[in-house]
């Protein structure tokens, strides 16, 4: 590399940092930085009346894997934690798939409207979200409950003869989360599809590719950045979802978000709550890194 090129690379890296610094500063002050407090708290002793006692302890960390069975007076594997964790991962993955299955056609539809209409369709996607999450979740409950619109309509159509018990099941949580997170999938997808050059389709069809093949071989690779962004925006927040499982799941089936909240509030075990949070953070961060690496490698090999 010539000195001039080296200079250009260095310059580019410096600009990259400079442009990112303002966002990083805000995040350090009002998000990531304060999280260090949580890391610190995970090594302290729980205070029965809330908060922590400033005395070193590993109880919080041990509590993740082992629960002290106060009845048998012995430590055993915390299988309740595993159940809750597994349910969260499973529901979040399914939510991501469902939002993609619905969101991709929707984003495609919006992106293929005449240019001056697109903004309107985009707004139509976000308008329902102007109503607050709590009240919206209650409205969903209103639709899917036993005497709700959905069941009434299905019975009237003769599809079923008894109402489906949807409310207070994992299906209800899934429906609710897919509803809540749909725009998080549609908007990033739209942002990349909108850029898609439709002449590529023409070329593909001219070469006698089927629609399915075109979709797989031409469209999906190009809109991949949008798919990555959308899946992250849906999957990661749904792991920590709180309101939806609480309202639609009927509170009988916790997700990680609810479980961590229990430790910080009613359970008054801040160190355990903190240790659980740090564990979740590490797992998600790791998964995200792997996901991005793999996705980027695929992309460069596609082009290379």
């Amino acid at each position: 590399m010539s000195p001039a090129e080296q200079n250009a690379v260095r310059q580019s890296a410096r600009n990259g940092w400079l442009l990112s610094v303002p966002a990083l500063v805000v995040l350090a002050l009002a998000a990531s930085g304060p999280l260090l407090i949580v890391v610190y708290y995970s090594f302290l002793t729980a205070n029965d009346t809330g908060g922590v006692i400033r005395q070193f302890s590993l109880e919080g960390w041990r509590g993740i894997f082992l629960t002290y069975d106060i009845f048998d007076e012995e430590y055993r594997l915390a299988d309740a934690h595993l159940t809750i964790f597994w349910r969260s991962v499973w529901l979040s993955l399914t939510t991501t798939l469902v939002t993609f299955a619905v969101g991709f056609p929707t984003a495609w539809f919006i992106a293929t409207r005449p240019a001056q209409q697109r903004a309107m369709w985009l707004f139509l996607i976000t308008i329902p979200f102007w109503t607050n999450l709590l009240i919206r979740t209650f409205a969903i409950n209103e639709v899917i409950r036993n005497e709700g619109i959905l069941n009434t309509a299905l019975i009237w159509l003769g599809v079923i003869d008894r109402p489906l018990q949807i409310v207070y099941t994992e299906t209800a949580v899934l429906i609710g989360m897919a509803y809540v997170y749909l725009p998080l999938m549609v908007l990033p997808l739209y942002a990349t599809i909108e850029r898609f050059d439709m002449r590529l389709l023409e070329a593909s069809y001219d070469l006698y590719a089927s629609r399915w093949r075109t979709l797989r071989r031409v469209i999906l690779p190009i809109v991949k950045p949008g798919i990555i962004a959308g899946s992250i925006l849906v999957f990661v927040p749904s792991l920590g979802a709180y309101v939806t499982p609480r309202v639609l799941g009927g509170g009988k089936k916790m997700m990680i978000g609810n479980f961590i909240e229990l430790q910080f509030l009613q359970g008054k075990n801040w160190p355990l709550g903190a240790a659980l949070s740090v564990t979740l953070l590490i797992i998600v961060m790791g998964a995200l890194l792997i996901y991005v690496r793999v996705a980027n490698r695929d992309r460069s090999s596609d082009h290379g």
Partner: peptide, 18 residues
């Protein structure tokens, strides 16, 4: 409620809501 009483409650509650 503090101490052992609270521990019992949280343990049962977790079991109940998992």
């Amino acid at each position: 409620c503090t101490g052992k009483g609270l521990e019992y409650m949280t343990a049962i509650w977790t079991e109940l809501q998992k």
